[in-house]
Write a protein that binds this DNA or RNA. Sequence first.
DNA 1: ATAATAAAGTTACCCAGGATAACTATTACC
DNA 2: GGTAATAGTTATCCTGGGTAACTTTATTAT
Lengths: 105, 105
Amino acid sequence: MYYLYNFGSATLVELSTYQGVEKPTITRTMNRLEEMGYVKQVPSEDKREKPMQLTELGVQIYKEVRLTIDEFEENILKGISEEEQIEVIRIMGEIRNHIFQRGDS
Amino acid sequence: MYYLYNFGSATLVELSTYQGVEKPTITRTMNRLEEMGYVKQVPSEDKREKPMQLTELGVQIYKEVRLTIDEFEENILKGISEEEQIEVIRIMGEIRNHIFQRGDS
DNA sequence: ATAATAAAGTTACCCAGGATAACTATTACC
DNA sequence: GGTAATAGTTATCCTGGGTAACTTTATTAT
């Protein structure tokens, strides 16, 4: 969801494409985030679109969560050398390519 | 679910422990598998317990699915050397240990 | 310029798979 | 024999995914 943090604002279709999810799913999620005050609508030229962006609260929460995740990752990877991490990421990437090269999943 | 294939039979609590899931979840799943004819109840000493085992149909289906999965895995791992696979598994294991060594998740 | 088509969202459903709380029936234990 | 614990079930809730059908607005083609 917090594609918005890095891209500023995005329409629902953008988000659903990014997330690999159908439009109604994003609609629902966004409604909830809006109710929770983490996200708000911004005006748009095209009256079909409904671009959203994070509120100040949303940004704040995002940063907190981001921090928690980063700390968690750091803890989890303690004792795994950088070369090892790179190796694993490389191999996983290869596997992913194999998956995508034969009907999606 | 197909812990049953390798262990012959198991009670619902056994299965829920194995799967890391609550009892009602297993109850529901087992009811569905039973309706589908993949699993049946076996008699038990302890009248509280309800040990289940695969039916012939269940075994057959299990083998088919197993085969499909194995083929998929093989395809996906094509081009990844055995040493690489072992390395990745080792590192993932380390990470898992780190996760478990600090409150579950 | 208008009619047809496409795109963005929304609404009303459905489904799977997880959870809790509260309960019954059976067995174990003091 | 009465209290504890254990196995399972029922009812209900939640999340996060999906499809189908619809409206509103833009785009495209005639």
